[in-house]
């Protein structure tokens, strides 16, 4: 009987694994196929390439245009993700730990950018920025991208805070720490891995964002995705294969870094007997 059920489980397992493998390939294929193609030659973009060369990368690094927009995108993404972190991390903490009147409205407000179609937000920003003369300015784009990354950081921070031991914060309060000290010296240090990965993803979010940027940037603020979008739409030049590969590499790095941080955080949480002692102590105190 056991052998029979395990055999059945085995056969069914293979169907699921087979289908899932096909789907993993379907998902990963477009991100990965462009890598070998980008090392082919200029004349024809094929997979697998007939001859390998660095021509397309020479084109990319030889083009002042592409380098300028890349550098610009890096700067804007760094500014936007920093602004978003400064604004969203405290909010994530408070939303995870407190109740207050109007909390539901604030949650709706903060998660709004995830709910509204991005093209609607983009048109709104376009019309609004026209009035404020912010079209084509760096500050306009940075603020817009910070807004767009906020829900993601709030959710990540709130989830991180919820996984922390609240007793530690109570102990700190009992020991006489005020609220800002609890936040900066008890909560934030424990959240470092969460915050780094939230920051990385916020950076990537802005670095890859195309629709908002398409609507509100001007010639002097064109970002890499905007240039890429119009280049795919109007000319499809082969150098795009190199650009796409570089973007894929950035995504892979960010994903792996976030994964490593998460694993490190899990390991650290396992190896922390002192935390359970602290929480146990506080628990008995509060129940007494």
């Amino acid at each position: 009987m056991t052998s029979k059920t395990s055999q059945r489980g085995f056969s069914r397992g293979w169907i699921v694994v087979g289908l899932a493998t096909l789907m993993y390939i379907y998902l990963l294929f477009p991100s990965l196929v462009i890598v070998p193609i980008s090392f082919g030659n200029r004349a024809e973009l094929v997979f697998p390439p007939r001859t390998f060369s660095l021509d397309l990368y020479r084109d990319y690094f030889g083009s002042a245009d592409w380098l300028t927009v890349t550098g610009r995108s890096i700067i804007y993404a760094a500014l936007a993700s920093s602004l978003a972190m400064v604004v969203a991390v405290p909010a994530g903490y408070v939303l995870a730990r407190t109740n207050f009147p109007g909390k539901r409205i604030l949650v709706m407000l903060v998660l709004g950018p995830m709910m509204v179609p991005v093209v609607v937000i983009s048109l709104g920003l376009y019309l609004y920025y026209l009035k404020l003369s912010l079209i084509g300015t760096a500050i306009g784009l940075v603020v817009a991208h910070a807004m767009y990354a906020t829900p993601f950081i709030v959710l990540t921070t709130a989830a991180g805070v919820e996984s922390l031991d609240e007793q530690l914060e109570r102990v700190a309060v009992i020991m006489g720490a005020n609220q800002s000290r609890v936040f900066s010296q008890v909560v934030l240090p424990q959240l470092v891995p969460t915050l780094i990965s939230a920051g990385l993803f916020a950076f990537l979010n802005s670095f890859d964002e195309v629709v908002i940027a398409w609507f509100i940037t001007g010639p002097s603020t064109t970002t890499l995705p905007v240039k890429m979008y119009s280049s795919i739409k109007w000319e499809t030049s082969p150098v795009l294969a190199a650009v796409a590969t570089i973007l894929t590499a950035v995504s892979i790095l960010v994903c792996l870094a976030a994964y490593a941080l998460k694993q490190a955080a899990l390991k650290r949480a396992e190896r922390k007997p002192c935390r359970t002692i602290a929480s146990g102590g506080a628990q008995s105190e509060s129940t007494n």
Partner: peptide, 11 residues
């Protein structure tokens, strides 16, 4: 987390 532009281009 891969840019939609990368995927579109490779398609």
């Amino acid at each position: 987390w891969t840019s939609i532009l990368v995927k579109s281009y490779s398609f």
